[in-house]
Amino acid sequence: SRIFVQDTIYDKFVAELSALFDKVKVGLPWEESTQLGSLIYEAQVEKVLSYVELAKEEGARVAAGGVRVTDGELGKGCFIRPTLIVDATNDMRVAREEIFGPVAVVIKFHSEEEVIEQANDSLYGLGGGVFTQNLNRAIRVARAIETGRMWVNTYNSIPAGAPFGGYKQSGIGRETHKVILEHYTQMKNIIINLSDKPSGFYDLD
Results as ranks from 00 to 15, higher is better:
G101S: 04
V152P: 06
T147K: 13
D121W: 06
S157A: 12
T185R: 01
G101Q: 06
K47S: 09
L126I: 05
K23L: 10
V105A: 02
F201Y: 11
A119C: 05
R174I: 09
C78A: 13
K168S: 01
P82V: 02
A43G: 11
I40L: 15
Y167P: 11
V130I: 13
I180L: 13
D203C: 12
S122Y: 03
T132D: 08
G166Y: 04
E98R: 08
E16I: 11
K197N: 14
K76Q: 02
A162G: 07
S122C: 03
K108L: 01
A160C: 07
T132H: 09
E114I: 03
I172R: 08
E32G: 13
K25M: 11
G65P: 02
G27N: 06
L17T: 15
V5P: 04
S195W: 06
I80E: 02
S18L: 06
E114F: 01
N120Q: 10
Y184K: 11
A63C: 02
N156S: 14
G200Q: 02
V179I: 15
L74K: 03
K56N: 05
P159L: 04
S111R: 07
G161C: 04
V115L: 14
F100C: 00
K178Y: 14
D121A: 12
K56P: 03
E46K: 09
S111K: 09
P198W: 12
I139F: 13
G75V: 02
L181E: 06
R137K: 15
V106R: 13
D121E: 09
K108M: 01
V179A: 14
Y51F: 04
I192P: 06
K47L: 07
F100L: 05
E32C: 05
S33F: 12
Q133S: 14
G72K: 08
V106D: 12
M150Q: 07
T70L: 01
L135D: 07
V69F: 08
G125L: 01
V86I: 05
G77M: 05
G65K: 04
L39Y: 05
R174D: 06
V62G: 04
N90P: 00
F201S: 14
Y155P: 06
Q169H: 04
Q169M: 07
I139M: 15
N189R: 13
L17N: 08
S122A: 05
V152K: 08
E57F: 00
G171M: 01
Y202E: 14
R61Y: 12
V103A: 07
K12H: 13
N153R: 13
N136K: 06
P198A: 15
M187L: 10
A15W: 09
H183F: 14
A64W: 05
V62L: 10
D203V: 10
Y124S: 06
V5T: 03
V45M: 05
R68V: 12
S50I: 00
A138Y: 02
P29T: 11
K76G: 04
T83C: 06
V48Y: 03
E57W: 02
G166P: 09
R140E: 08
L39M: 07
R149E: 12
L20S: 14
W30N: 14
E97P: 03
T34M: 03
E175C: 01
V48F: 11
S170P: 01
K47H: 10
T70D: 00
L49M: 00
V106M: 11
